[in-house]
Amino acid sequence: MPRDNELMAVTGFRSTHALCTLVERLVDPAFLVQQAPEGLLSGYHFADLPILGTVTAGVPSPADEELTDTMSLDEYLIANKEATYILKVRGDSMIDAGILPGDLLLVERGVTPRDGDMVIAQVDREWTMKFFRRRGSTVFLEAANQNYRPIHPQEELTIAAVVRAVIRKYA
């Protein structure tokens, strides 16, 4: 950060009082930090991005640098944030695909399903979870459970969403 005399040259202020007032205003919302030996340091809100920390001398901590390239669990699981919904599984129709009653699904609305996608379809005014299968020009829904027969839609098939992730929380 620039020194007082440098700041005065930049701002054109001729009084240190005016400069101090400006600095105080920037310190208050944590854009800048005032510290005795170093003078001004960039604050937490500097450039609107959290600063990882300030280092007085020497090499920056390698751990801090590496952490800038990590993603949160939300970012990992959710691609299209505005179109993602959650739902709770009740039935056992996908049990052979490893999906159990009580599991939570993250599903994305408004995407065109591809063959083999796990989808949430609307059948008889109810949600149903199945594999989406396309054979040439015909499509059908297939359960991952031998007790359920494939569903061949008579007229229209409404696919509400495609399953993107399964969450099972223990305890």
Partner: peptide, 12 residues
């Protein structure tokens, strides 16, 4: 609660 809207009803 979780800040993601939920599909309601039975999912079979």
């Amino acid at each position: 609660r979780l800040g993601i809207p939920m599909f309601m009803g039975e999912v079979r």
